[in-house]
């Protein structure tokens, strides 16, 4: 059986070290390190609650092995901004009521960021397709789609449309 090894993960710009066996997922590693903003949902790649970005690409951290991402740039939702300096997506989600229980929100925001990074001017359909791997059981999605459009217009420098 595999023995644990010491690995260093670069999370939100900071190197953090932990002891992990080969089967340790990035989701487990992040939460073990205290990054509990990354949520554990289905652990099957269906719900998107655990989404983080690796070198700018959004992935499900439950399907990613921690050993495989040593030395890569890992960004969680906390790496985008905080309450003093929120990312436009964080602000729009909060302002427009796109958050209810909040469990899906970290993954939803990471997926939304990936949608906007790939296409700064997404159609509603682009957003729906882009968020098809994120489940929300509260909002009915409408406010989430509105928040993503709002944040996209802020990020394009057009100001918010509230």
């Amino acid at each position: 059986m595999s023995s644990p090894k010491k690995i260093t993960l670069r999370i939100n710009g900071v190197n953090e070290t932990l002891e992990a066996p080969a089967h340790r997922t990035l989701l487990e590693a992040l939460r073990d390190l205290g990054h509990v903003e990354v949520k554990c949902g289905c652990e099957k790649g269906d719900c998107g609650a655990c989404a983080v970005s690796i070198d700018g690409v959004a992935v499900d951290s439950c399907l990613t092995l921690a050993w495989m991402v040593e030395g890569r740039e890992i960004t969680t939702v906390s790496g985008l901004g905080d309450i003093e300096n929120p990312h436009p997506l964080q602000k729009s989600f909060s302002d427009l009521g796109a958050i209810q229980c909040g469990y899906c929100t970290p993954g939803m925001i990471m997926a939304s960021k990936s949608v906007i990074d790939r296409n700064p001017n997404p159609t509603d359909d682009d957003i729906r397709v882009g968020l098809s791997g994120n489940l929300c059981r509260c909002t009915g999605y409408t406010k989430i789609f509105e928040a993503v459009q709002d944040a996209a217009s802020v990020m394009r420098g057009e100001g918010d449309k509230q």
């Binding site: 989404a51 997926a111 098809s132």
Partner: peptide, 12 residues
């Protein structure tokens, strides 16, 4: 590819 799973799964 367009209708393949969800966004994060398509990335991986």
């Amino acid at each position: 590819a367009r209708v393949f799973a969800g966004h994060m799964v398509r990335n991986a």
